[in-house]
Design a protein around this nucleic acid. Structure first.
Length: 284
DNA sequence: TATATTGTTACACC
DNA sequence: TGGTGTAACAATAT
């Protein structure tokens, strides 16, 4: 389930692996993943050179030499796995494979996606800013210019939202999904059902600190491989042992020894410690 | 066999 | 209008 730390890990790897490579061919076996006419897609992509790989929210931006950029979203089960020429393929290189990019040096990039929710689209590089403006995405949480004041201001715009859902909405803050929203709220000691308007400033500060800290630490360990996630080299992330609540229902809280609970919020499961994250704020 | 899973969006409703 | 809530998408594990 790639969230910001996972997608950013892949971006960094692909940026150094693919920059300068020229695309010799693209094989598409699941056309619905490509959000434009397939013939047009191939015509633009084949023969183009990759300049760099960027990211906005969970969207990878592959900038091409011909003034076009490929936008790739992995949604929940997508993978982009790079293999050098003659490098031995693993089972996950070939299973659920929907697109294969081959480069002139014989290396390949495999885009596979078990649930088939991901996509590839093309946008003129000059129109990227306009494109993302239309998407109305929230700020990049790890950027230095995302401040506590920004966070408080965005919270104010959604006074009735439950904090768990607020954190997961990419139009509020980009890049946070189910795993890290649970972890951020545990770090902050805030119950996932709390309404944003009733949060005290100390709690807002703690959640903000949690966003920065948890995402940065997860990125450092190359993300979490709960079930599907693999990076561009086909490797798992190392953050799962650091998870305090996500996927730990019924297990002991690492802080207080209480039992981790799970709640359904907006069709998603929220994991939390009922003792460390009380529904009613403490009175001091 | 029924249910849970996941990110995002389309859509209904007020 | 916009804010909010829910279903849908798909293939798997349990």
């Amino acid at each position: 389930m790639p969230e910001l730390p996972e997608v950013e890990t892949i971006r960094r790897q692909l940026n150094s692996l693919l920059a300068g490579k020229k695309i010799r061919s693209v094989k598409v076996s699941l056309p619905k993943m490509v959000k434009l006419n397939l013939g047009k897609f191939k015509k633009i992509v084949v023969g183009a050179k990759i300049i760099c790989v960027l990211r906005r929210a969970k969207i990878l931006i592959v900038e091409l030499s011909n003034d076009w950029s490929m936008l790739v979203h992995l949604k929940m089960s997508g993978r982009l796995i790079f293999r050098r020429k003659r490098e031995k393929l693993q089972e996950h290189d070939t299973k659920w494979n929907h697109l294969i990019y081959e480069f002139f040096d014989g290396s390949r990039l495999f885009h596979n996606d078990l649930r088939q929710f991901g996509y590839v689209k093309l946008v003129k590089s000059a129109e990227l800013a306009e494109f993302f403006k239309k998407e109305k995405l929230g700020p990049e949480p790890l950027e230095k210019d995302f401040t506590l004041e920004d966070f408080a201001a965005i919270l104010k715009k959604r006074p009735n939202a439950k904090i768990k859902q607020f954190l997961m909405d990419p139009q509020n803050i980009a890049g946070i999904g189910n795993i890290y929203s649970d972890e951020i709220l545990f770090f902050a000691g805030v119950h996932p059902l709390r309404r944003t308007c009733e949060l005290k400033s100390a709690e807002i500060k703690k959640i903000f600190g949690g966003i920065k800290k948890i995402l940065a630490e997860a990125l450092k360990l190359h993300g979490s491989s709960d079930n599907d996630y693999l990076d561009a080299l086909g490797r798992k992330g190392d953050y799962v042992p650091q998870l305090k609540v996500y996927g730990r229902e019924g297990e002991k809280c690492k802080k207080c020894g209480g039992i981790i609970a799970r709640l359904k919020i907006g069709g998603r499961s929220a994991h939390f410690c009922p003792a460390c994250q009380a529904l009613r704020p403490s009175r001091q």
